[in-house]
């Protein structure tokens, strides 16, 4: 049978995603935008759970809401007077951007909703596929076990490349953010650029 998620859960999570995302892009205090981003990430994790991607829901909470969002909040607190309602300087050209984004939304929605996607019942989830090591992957829904085998059997090279990428970005971030003693730093206090 075609997968049929709970409508009440879907609409609740969808409302939370849309509301929090709106707060991310419209909040007047940057710190509130960061907190709203955490809410959005949790709601998206709930949607992953609704789609029975349990591993991805856990990764979303751990990596996104737990690490990336907290790092961004740290960056906000390091660079910004946290509760400063920086109204004027936080957004620019809202109406032009809103019109552009509404046009983009119309195009995307028109494209997706007018298409007929080839959905399939659960029993067709790669029934013949077995990993090379010979273990049988029992469940039809995307289980953690099946995902692990998938990562190591056909996706070995991307998996290793991602670890190299993370190492490179770690070193790069250290190099970029390190204080360079040869260069003078800008003085404290906000420097206004002459018009």
């Amino acid at each position: 049978m075609i997968y049929d998620p709970n409508p009440v859960a879907f609409w609740l999570l969808a409302a939370m995603v849309a509301g929090c995302a709106l707060a991310v892009v419209r909040a007047r205090k940057l710190f509130h935008a960061g907190l709203a981003l955490v809410g959005t990430l949790f709601a998206v994790a709930g949607l992953y759970g609704l789609l029975q991607a349990w591993f991805l829901a856990a990764v979303q909470v751990l990596v996104y809401a737990g690490a990336i969002a907290i790092m961004l909040l740290f960056a906000i607190m390091l660079t910004h007077n946290m509760m400063n309602p920086d109204l004027k300087s936080l957004t620019t050209q809202p109406w032009t951007a809103a019109a552009l984004c509404l046009m983009l939304l119309a195009i995307l929605l028109g494209g997706t909703l007018s298409s007929t996607w080839q959905t399939a019942p659960d029993t067709t989830l790669s029934p013949t596929w077995t990993p090379k090591c010979g273990f049988q992957v029992a469940e039809a829904i995307p289980s953690v076990q099946a995902l692990g085998f998938r990562l190591l059997d056909p996706f070995t090279l991307p998996f290793e490349m991602v670890s190299v990428l993370i190492l490179v970005s770690l070193i790069g971030a250290l190099v970029v953010a390190r204080r360079n003693p040869a260069l003078p730093e800008a003085p404290e206090g906000r420097e206004e650029k002459a018009p």
């Binding site: 892009v25 620019t92 983009l104 939304l105």
Partner: peptide, 19 residues
Amino acid sequence: AVLFCLGTYGVLTRRNAIA
């Protein structure tokens, strides 16, 4: 699609790099 367009809106309108 809605989430992506909200993100695009934020990228276009926000001045602050962290936003």
